[in-house]
Design a protein around this nucleic acid. Structure first.
Ligand code: SF4
Ligand code: SF4
Lengths: 135, 135
DNA sequence: CTATAAAAGACAAAATCGGTCTTAAAGGGC
DNA sequence: GCCCTTTAAGACCGATTTTGTCTTTTATAG
C-alpha cells in the first residue's frame, strides 16, 4: 500500500536537480536524465507536464533547457508529488461523498482522513530547497 | 498516490462484519459478502488468506463459516491492511538498503520514513473493536 | 537556413487489479 | 455409506495502470 510510483520518484529527482542548478543556468533534459538515472524520454514527459503548470520553465532551441518556475523554497514536496500522482487519497471514499454508501456511518472513514491529513502535513512542510541542500 | 485497493477495503469490511457477530455464532461467506457489498468469490479469497495466518478461523461443512481468530480488541487496522496490501511502503527505497544508489545521502529518504512511521502509528492504534462499535 | 532542443502524441510491453470458474476436500446429518 | 453444505485451492481472465519508446512537430539561437 501507499507506494510512490517511479514517475513520482523521477519527478522529485528532476526537480531537485533543477534546484541545485546555479542561478542563471539551464539544464538539458539529457543532462538531468543521466545525472539522476532516469530514462530520458520518460523524464521529458514529466517535465513537460510540469512546464504546463508552471512548476518549471522550458526553452527550446540552442541554449534551451529547463529551469525551476519558482524559487525552490516556494515549492513543497507535496506539490511535486501531487502534480504527478494526483491528490493524496488513502481511500476512494474520500474524494466524493457518494463514493460509498456507508460513508455516513462508517468509523473507518475518519481514520483515512487522519492519514490523509498527516501525510499532506508532512509532505507539505518540506521544501525543495531543503531537499537540495545536501551534496 | 497511496490508494488502498479494493481488496484492502473489502478485507476491512469483512473483518468488521465478523467483529460484530454475536459471540458463539459463525458467518457464512455468502452472508458476509451480501451484507458488505463485496463480490462473494473475491471476499472468499481474502478470508481464506486470513485463515491461513490465523486472523480468522474457518469451518467447513454444514454449520460452518468464519469467525475472528482473536478478540477484535487485539486486531489492529494496520494488521488487516498489511495482511492484504503488504507492508506500508511510501517508496521502494525503504525495503532494502540496496534499493537506491542515492539512499545514503538522499534527503528525501528520511521524509518517506517519517510518512511511513506516522501511517503505521495511526493505523496501528485503531482496533477492529473500536471500528465495530457503530451501528 | 541549419542545428538544436523541447513538445506532442501514438504505440506498446509488462505488471497489477479485480475479479470468475472449476474442482477438490472436509464436515454434519441421516 | 451417502448426500448436502460449506470452505480451499488454483487456474484463468479482461481491464486498467505503469513504465516506458518512437516518431513527428514546433520553436529558437546563431
Ligand atoms: S466502508 Fe467506510 S472506509 Fe470503506 S469506502 Fe465506505 S466510507 Fe470508506
Ligand atoms: S533518491 Fe532518495 S527517495 Fe528516491 S529512491 Fe533513492 S533514496 Fe529513496
Amino acid at each position: 500500500m501507499m507506494e510512490l510510483t517511479r514517475k513520482g520518484e523521477y519527478a522529485i529527482r528532476g526537480i531537485i536537480y533543477l534546484a541545485r542548478l546555479k542561478p542563471g543556468s539551464v539544464a538539458l533534459i539529457s543532462e538531468i536524465a543521466e545525472s539522476t538515472g532516469v530514462p530520458q524520454t520518460f523524464l521529458a514527459k514529466i517535465l513537460q507536464s510540469f512546464a504546463k503548470i508552471g512548476l518549471v520553465n522550458s526553452f527550446r532551441g540552442t541554449g534551451g533547457g529547463f529551469v525551476l518556475g519558482r524559487p525552490p523554497a516556494k515549492i513543497t514536496l507535496l506539490e511535486v508529488v501531487e502534480a504527478v500522482e494526483g491528490p493524496i487519497m488513502p481511500n476512494r471514499c474520500m474524494m466524493d461523498e457518494s463514493g460509498c454508501e456507508f460513508s455516513r456511518t462508517c468509523l473507518v472513514h475518519p481514520v483515512w482522513r487522519e492519514v490523509q491529513s498527516k501525510v499532506v502535513q508532512i509532505l507539505g512542510s518540506v521544501t525543495i530547497e531543503e531537499l537540495s541542500k545536501g551534496e
